[in-house]
């Protein structure tokens, strides 16, 4: 396949990567340079429209929107990464243990997973926010914990399928230890499914943070987060649309990018759809 054809078949992967790159880039840039202090209030300049001085305008306290958006991308990344890390980390451990041990350990672990999965994730987030106090930590934790069962089940299923497979049997017969089997054979083969799930979890974490912010339980002010900015701006829509438009766009585009990335990864990594794509052409 030449580059042109690759792009045509994997446009979603490419678009997803570009958007993710933009997100990382803006977060990285924010450490080096932001036009204004994102938290400095300036009542005299509130609700300023986009101009030379404030490229995207200002919010209800006269804070520079661009600076807040850029610094807010750090919050977005932190929320997503931590949620995925918790979900994936614990899920991998629980799912792997369940699959590998089998028997009553498997049974107990999976019942606990069922119990956690029976909680609507947002309810879990509200409970966490009540325990830890409002803030993005509760959101990250809650989304992470809520997705543990998904990761655990995926891990367990793909491990179980692979443990029985011929090449793992062969590796075992050749005398490879448990850790080695897991690291060399099980993880790489289960990675595809988990990676796709990770992009979805990342996107969900962003939306959950916005939802928590709507309920007043999201990120602590004055730290900028897109969800919180969107929520605050909603009350001021008739005075200035910009404080609502830009964070809303940022959330939508990022979630879109992550989902495209997930789809693209699935196409590339999943042999079934890959072959089907090739066949259709």
């Amino acid at each position: 396949m030449n580059r042109h054809r690759w792009l045509r078949h994997h446009w979603n992967l490419a678009a997803g990567l570009v958007i993710l790159g933009l997100l990382l880039g803006s977060a990285g840039l924010s450490f080096l340079y932001v036009p204004h202090d994102p938290n400095r209030t300036n009542i005299a300049d509130r609700f300023a429209p986009p101009s030379d001085r404030y490229l995207l305008g200002t919010d209800q306290y006269g804070r520079d929107l661009l600076s807040r958006m850029v610094v807010g991308s750090r919050t977005a990344i932190r929320v997503g990464v931590v949620a995925v890390a918790i979900g994936l980390g614990i899920g991998l451990l629980v799912g792997g243990m369940a699959a590998y041990s089998g028997g009553w350990i498997d049974e107990i672990l999976m019942r606990i997973m069922d119990a956690v999965a029976a909680y609507p994730p947002l309810l879990l987030a509200i409970l966490f926010a009540s325990i830890l106090g409002p803030g993005d930590i509760s959101g990250m934790l809650a989304i992470g914990v809520a997705t543990v069962p998904v990761f655990a089940r995926l891990t367990r299923a793909s491990f179980l399928a692979l443990v029985e497979s011929e090449f793992v049997q062969a590796a075992r017969a050749a005398g490879a230890g448990t850790a080695r089997v897991i690291c060399r054979h099980l993880l790489p083969n289960g990675a595809a499914v988990l990676l796709v799930q990770a992009t979805t979890t990342f996107a969900n974490a962003l939306l959950a943070e916005a939802a928590l912010s709507y309920l007043g339980l999201g990120t602590q002010p004055p730290h900028p987060s897109w969800g919180r900015m969107l929520r605050e701006a909603q009350d001021f829509l008739i005075f200035s649309p910009y404080p609502a438009v830009f964070p809303g766009l940022a959330i939508a585009v990022t979630v879109l990018g992550l989902n495209l990335l997930g789809d693209g990864l699935r196409d590339v990594l999943d042999p079934k759809t890959r072959s089907s794509a090739a066949r259709r052409v």
Binding site: T41, Y61, G133, P134, G216, L217, Q220, P221
Partner: peptide, 30 residues
């Protein structure tokens, strides 16, 4: 968190205090 006027007053007051050298950490509570 449940009182918007308190949140807003607090955020502005925090900004004003910062200008005289008082660093204010905001903590939201239910």
């Amino acid at each position: 968190v449940s009182y918007t006027y308190a949140l807003r007053s607090g955020e502005i007051a925090a900004g004003q205090l910062a200008r005289v050298g008082i660093r204010v950490n905001i903590e939201l509570v239910e």
